[in-house]
Design a protein around this nucleic acid. Sequence first.
DNA 1: CGAACGCTTGAGAGGCATCAAGAAACGTGG
DNA 2: CCACGTTTCTTGATGCCTCTCAAGCGTTCG
Lengths: 255, 255
Amino acid sequence: MSETCNATNESCLVAKLSHYIDLTPSESRLLETLQENERDFRRRDAVFRLDAEMPDIFVVKSGWIYSHADNLDGSEYIAMLYFPGDVVGISQVGFARSPLTYSAATEVTICPFPKLSLQVVFREHPRLVALFFALATLEHAGMIDRLRAIGCMSARDRLAVLLLQIRARLRITGGRDQPFLDLPLSQELIGNAIGLSMVSVNRAFRQLEDEGRIRREGRRVEIVAPESLAAEVDFSDRHYAIDKSWFPAAAHDGP
Amino acid sequence: MSETCNATNESCLVAKLSHYIDLTPSESRLLETLQENERDFRRRDAVFRLDAEMPDIFVVKSGWIYSHADNLDGSEYIAMLYFPGDVVGISQVGFARSPLTYSAATEVTICPFPKLSLQVVFREHPRLVALFFALATLEHAGMIDRLRAIGCMSARDRLAVLLLQIRARLRITGGRDQPFLDLPLSQELIGNAIGLSMVSVNRAFRQLEDEGRIRREGRRVEIVAPESLAAEVDFSDRHYAIDKSWFPAAAHDGP
DNA sequence: CGAACGCTTGAGAGGCATCAAGAAACGTGG
DNA sequence: CCACGTTTCTTGATGCCTCTCAAGCGTTCG
């Protein structure tokens, strides 16, 4: 079902960025060209491996991807989740080799484009660069929230923060009024993301359910009163508005 | 003592960025103008408060700063440490109001400049923007390392990772051959940074000391065999080289 | 010299990991 | 469509790591 960000053929990336600024025709055109090639992966496939050269960046067209590091003891740690419309690799663009492995959590379609095409973007579309920069700061803030959750909170609260974060991010492209979260992640993967064992994740789910904060149907989760849960765990959704006051003007548009 | 990044009057920011690219005269000039005003703070002063408007970004000229969030229960969580040459606020540039409080860990001198001056940088110095972007990805990677440490590791290993991270970052501007780390942080603050109580930090220090991995003299710490400790906790220093292949060319230099 | 702060160490409690085993869901091939 | 194997979920029991509480000590600074 609609793990793609929308039913039309509009680019997910354009849809996501349009949420923040009105793209000029030439900006849109540039972004479309970044998504001309597609590649598909099946669940559990590695999209990029640790230490592989990363000549490309890619946009997630449909499906979920997660990046992870493999610990010495065989366990793995999930660094980040990526949803349709997200640009993967932007946050690692300073590295010649991938510091993480990227794996498909579901069936996935991505649109890769070469890092080198960033040169054109940097030279000719400073406003887009500023927007990417601003989006990177959102990602950064999400990371801080997760660090705080893992560092200071109980299992129950960590899980609550993760669910609220996922909901906040999916609402950007997925529409504001979807009551259910469709989590394609096993409880083990969730545990890897928030520093818990699978057993503790399961008990945290049960606790939230018993308290009436969430409802579950298989891997579907409904957060009953998101605002009240967010207040309880001191979570704030920073994904809706960004400060654009410092953006340069859009490049003048050719015909 | 030399908490400033160097004894000369050369800008810390220029010193740090020069480590990565050869700055053109006009790039250097621009960066110097960003550091024309200075402001001093004393230990424990708040440099910017949570929710304060952030019209400025600033460069740390001397001293250490830490950013933190205050939890509902009164505890605080340290999100990031900033050293001389670091640009504070770049990673929060997408927010109109500061999502964190910034406090001085030592006596501090900063050089603030208005966010709005970024417009010029974005329009006219794409290569500098690319460098800032790349540095942001280093910060991001450091964050992932810390997340992994907090999520998966014992108290001892978390402390080891933190010490190795601080060492790696200080070596960029501070020279490669300084055997001692001069930590101006109380054990309580260190605990706030890696999700431990002060008591556990103390015991982790003692354990590393008893094992001969570190030596201590007050708040001075010497890591006895950094490479071997890094291997043990699976830490890699990513701060020395970055991938610049995708950088645009420097803007043509005026006279 | 006294007060405040930070460091150190001990004892006890609690939360999460680990181990283990059974139930449910899923996928696959006959 | 069913049977079987695999994966995932669920729950209980036990143990360990870190937190909390507490007290003593050293240092710094007014």
